[in-house]
Amino acid sequence: MTTTLDLHSHSEASEDSRAPLEAYLNWLKLKRTERPVDGVVLTEHRQFNQEGDYRALEDKFGILVLKASEVETDYGHVLVFGVTDEMTRRFDFANVHLPAQEVIDEVARMGGVAVPCHPGRPNVGLCEHYTHKPPLENVIAVEVLNGGSRRGEDERSEELVRQFGYSAVGGSDSHLVSLIGLCATRFEGEIRTAEDLVRELKSGSYAPVDFRPRRKPVPHAVPVEVK
């Protein structure tokens, strides 16, 4: 049984998003045929919502909701899956200069997986840091499909994957309700919990999936007179 998850999304708990989780789930229900995702992973910026209990919403919409985090490191932004109390005690998630190698190694030791996201993005992506710093060790996957990427960013990420042999995941990086589920990751195994997700990420049996509609070319319109 396969499981398709949007691995990267931000609800209103992140300071730059106004998207309530319920609106995300309602939107996914509405768009089920276009974006057939089984669940979303909330990756709030620089925090982990330990208390959040979304079971009632999961039941209401029939969509899995998992919790993770997007932290900021000296090699750019990193998604942390399988967050535990031990991790939040070990690292101050609010610190925007976390040491990436320590995050990757310690998260793995504590039973999670750290995945650098949007590596092709200037300043906050792995590719730029690799131009002047040694490559990180023990990276198992990076996000090559990001719904917020600009032209060329995902292509740089793909090149990184080819060069270093990382596994590849996808996520919408949605900060708006209507963008949830546009990019996702299809896993070969069944995922019901954060522990399942970590197990599947370690397995390497997954691929990014792109549900963005093909865009028709926009013609260069005729200039209009300023009124």
């Binding site: 998207a19 309530p20 609106a23 939107w27 708006l176 209507s178 926009v218 260069h220 319109a221």
Partner: peptide
């Protein structure tokens, strides 16, 4: 450049 404005009712 040609720009496109788009929106969706979400709630």
């Amino acid at each position: 450049h040609t720009l496109t404005l788009q929106g969706f009712i979400t709630h």
